[in-house]
């Protein structure tokens, strides 16, 4: 499969208030082929969110480059969508208008974008919630809408920054299943940041394990276990334990 995202020797330095250099990322190299479900796993503060934000074009790298489809890329673009951890829906817009937001920015007429948004509302199984406002929805529903909103723009790549991190355990498992279903149906490349080993093992084709201060890629693990992965499968448990041990060292 063709390479979709490439990250070359990326480095990110922040400056603290007292002008101390803080190296958030160093020597990050990454190649993501099309249609891959890549999980980026690491402890809090290892720079995995920063990496995702740089790939999205929301932050600039201190040095190194990001390529999308072979072209160098520094600014947000419609082909790369993103789902945030929480509270990213426009609270003054209805669910349907939120899903249609990217299409509005693209200049589509209202009837057109609403009809597309309705398709995606259907995809997330929330037909009866089109006219609801975000504050009327549960956290899981809000994240569903955020995913539908990103997909309605028909991006090639979907960046997900701990999208289920604020959900309760049960909702989280339901959402993981649903995300896999959507991914298989829509054939997107997904970069999924998480600090949950279980989530990474359940979802990923491949897991990039990161370690902190400065953030770097520690290990690149392909997961060949067929889907749907059963958590009671001994292989699943073995993988989880291995990763947990690695994470402890990280």
């Amino acid at each position: 499969m063709q390479e979709m995202i490439r990250v070359d020797n990326l480095e990110k330095i922040f400056y603290s208030q007292s002008y101390m250099e803080i190296k958030a990322l160093t020597e990050v190299n990454l190649s993501v082929p099309g249609n891959e479900f890549l999980c980026i796993l690491g402890p809090s503060g290892c720079g995995k969110s920063t990496l995702l934000r740089i790939i999205a074009g929301l932050e600039t790298a201190s040095s190194g480059k990001v390529f999308y489809n072979g072209q160098e890329h520094t600014k947000p673009r419609r082909e790369i969508g993103m789902v945030f951890q929480s509270y990213s829906l426009m609270p003054w817009l209805t669910v349907l208008d939120n899903i249609a937001l990217g299409l509005e920015f693209a200049g589509l007429s209202r009837p057109k974008r609403i009809s597309i948004a309705e398709e995606y509302l259907d995809m997330i199984g929330m037909n009866s919630f089109g006219k609801a406002f975000p504050y009327e929805l549960s956290g899981g529903m809000q994240q569903r809408v955020a995913i539908a909103r990103a997909l309605a723009n028909n991006p090639e790549v979907l960046l997900m920054d701990e999208p289920f991190g604020a959900l309760d355990a049960y909702t989280r498992i339901v959402m993981q299943k649903e995300l896999l279903r959507i991914w298989e149906q829509h054939k997107k490349t997904i970069l999924f940041v998480t600090h949950s080993v279980d989530e990474a093992v359940y979802l990923g084709d491949r897991i990039i394990l990161m370690s902190g201060s400065p953030g770097r890629i520690k290990k690149d693990i392909a997961i060949t276990m067929p889907r749907v992965r059963e958590r009671r499968n001994p292989l699943y448990g073995k993988l989880t334990e291995e990763l947990l041990a690695l994470l402890e060292e990280a």
Binding site: G57, I80, M82, Y87, S88, F105, A106
Partner: peptide
């Protein structure tokens, strides 16, 4: 909220 601005940006605003 910065997340609102960020999410609009990635949607192509």
């Amino acid at each position: 909220r910065q997340t609102l601005i960020d999410s609009a940006r990635v949607l192509g605003a």
